[in-house]
Write a protein that binds this DNA or RNA. Sequence first.
DNA 1: TTTTCACCACTAAACCGTTA
DNA 2: TAACGGTTTAGTGGTGAAAA
Length: 299
Amino acid sequence: MKKGNKEKSNRAQADYFELLVCQYICHLYKITFSYSEDLAKLSNKILDKEDGKERMRLQNNNFIKIQPGIKKILDDEISRKGKIINVVWTGRHFVIEQSTSDVDAEHSSNKKTRFSIKSIAKSGTGTLKNLGLGKLEKWFSFSFKNQTDKMWRDLKNYIRQTTGKNTSKRGELKKIAQKNKKILEWAKRNGKIFQARLNSVCLEKFNSLPPKQKREFLNFITDCHDEDLYVVIVNNSGVAIYKPVDKTAKPKDRIIAKKENGSDVGYTIYINKIPTYRAQTNNTNGIGISAFCQRIFLI
DNA sequence: TTTTCACCACTAAACCGTTA
DNA sequence: TAACGGTTTAGTGGTGAAAA
């Protein structure tokens, strides 16, 4: 759905990249690659775009950059876990599973080596975690339902007053706002009030968590309970690889969240005075017309 | 009453324009 | 020019209303 401007999402590219890695591992260790069809489909999907060739080139170049790193990790793991007997594209299929792994290599010992792969066009490290409101409420023990309901009620009332249309259905309200510039602007302004509130609540609630729960939250966002997981990031400045388990928060760590230069959409989590994670409160699909979520980035 | 389906929320990934 | 804030795509899964 694009209107003049370029398409922003890159889902197909991300999947394509994951499969390139998958295929590479298969090739290295003589495993049958069973996702040829998916790879072909994704490749077509990317090439269908007006700048498809460019998008392909980027992924292929990034892929070349990470090959040595992947091979080194696996050769190292093979010496401990045995030869590789299978490669699984976890990809989008197990979104609900407690791991951000994209590709799993299975060893003869039944142990795994898992990869979370991020291929980025320019700078940045990609989203570490994306939490819906439900998760936030659970981790930080609060309820934002009254506020969310009020945001939608406000929009409903505004639409009723300006257009005479009377509906409470969020899907309909959203469509009306998207079609009318003035309403959309109003919805954004309204939504930002609640977005800022949610951000403040999360910051406050995080800081009032007992130290142990702060650590548990950080361990959850980094996925560091998974001993077999590697994160591989490739962007315009090169390749970065780390093991989430190495980032496990320690009991002596001082963990504090702070607002950075007055931002009302995010906060920074400091560990022993070092800015380590950045949270950003926003919406899945446009401010004021969709559900809230919070993304966490590695600094 | 049971099954189906439409709608919405949640999660993941990453591009893009603006700004500091 | 890197970081930030906003936005988009896309898949899974839950829920309640409509259909059978």
